[in-house]
Amino acid sequence: MPFNLSLAEREGAGLKRTLPVIERVDGRRLYVDGEQYLNFAGNDYLGLSRAPELLAAAEQAARHYGVGAVASPLVVGHQAIHRELEAELCDWLGLEAVMLFSSGFSANQAVIKALLGKEHSLWQDRLNHASLQEAGLLSPARMVRFGHNDMNALEAKLKPAAGLIVSEGVFSMDGDTAPWPELVRLARVSNNWLMIDDAHGLGVLGREGRGTLNEQGLAPNSVNIFMGTFGKALGVSGAFVGGSRALVEYLHNFGRSYIYSTHLPPPQAAAVLAGVRLVRQADDRRAHLRDLVARFRAGVAGLPLQLLPSATAIQPLVVGEETATLKLADALKQQGLWTGAIRPPTVPKGSARLRITLSAAHTRADVQRLIDALHSAL
Rank of each mutant, 00 (worst) to 15 (best):
G350F: 05
H120C: 07
I356Y: 04
A62H: 05
T323A: 11
M151D: 00
D174V: 09
Q281K: 15
Q60M: 14
A8V: 13
L374P: 08
L308R: 13
M227A: 14
A282T: 11
P316M: 08
W92C: 13
P181Q: 06
V318Q: 09
R355G: 05
V25T: 15
L48F: 15
H288L: 14
G68E: 10
N224K: 07
F101E: 02
I112M: 06
Y65V: 12
D283V: 14
K333T: 03
P316I: 15
L95N: 01
G228E: 06
P345I: 10
G238A: 03
E11C: 14
T339V: 15
M227G: 07
M173A: 11
R295Q: 07
A69C: 07
R188T: 07
L127C: 02
T339K: 05
A87H: 02
G302K: 11
D44N: 15
L278R: 01
T177V: 13
A61L: 15
S172R: 06
A135P: 11
K16A: 14
H148N: 00
R297V: 12
E321S: 08
I112P: 00
H148V: 01
Y65N: 04
A58L: 04
E322H: 08
P2T: 13
G231K: 12
L55C: 03
P348E: 04
R295P: 00
N192R: 05
A298N: 10
K349E: 11
G163H: 00
L205A: 04
L307C: 07
S190Y: 14
Y65G: 03
